[in-house]
């Protein structure tokens, strides 16, 4: 299936968010996730099921004012 990851379509077989992050190469990176605009805490990623067309945001610390 295809999901939109940070604005770009990516192909994935992962059925949940935790598996998708690993498959997408985020590994142990410090990131926060939102699925279809809703925050998904780290502890809930394995329970967040993915379906075709889902919109995933993967955010990390960045410079800010």
């Amino acid at each position: 299936m295809k999901i939109l990851v940070n604005g770009a379509w990516r192909e994935t077989d992962a059925s949940d968010l935790a598996a998708a992050l690993t498959a997408l190469g985020y590994g142990e990176a410090v990131v926060a996730t939102a699925l279809n605009g809703e925050f998904v805490p780290t502890g809930s990623r394995a329970d967040a099921r993915l379906i075709d067309g889902d919109r995933l945001e993967v955010l990390a610390p960045m410079q800010g004012g």
């Binding site: 940070n6 990176a29 990131v31 990390a60 610390p61 960045m62 410079q63 800010g64």
Partner: peptide
Amino acid sequence: VTVSLRRESSGERAGQGFW
């Protein structure tokens, strides 16, 4: 210091370095 959150690329991982 103030900081922000932005999209992280799994390749570049710029945010990890900044953090």
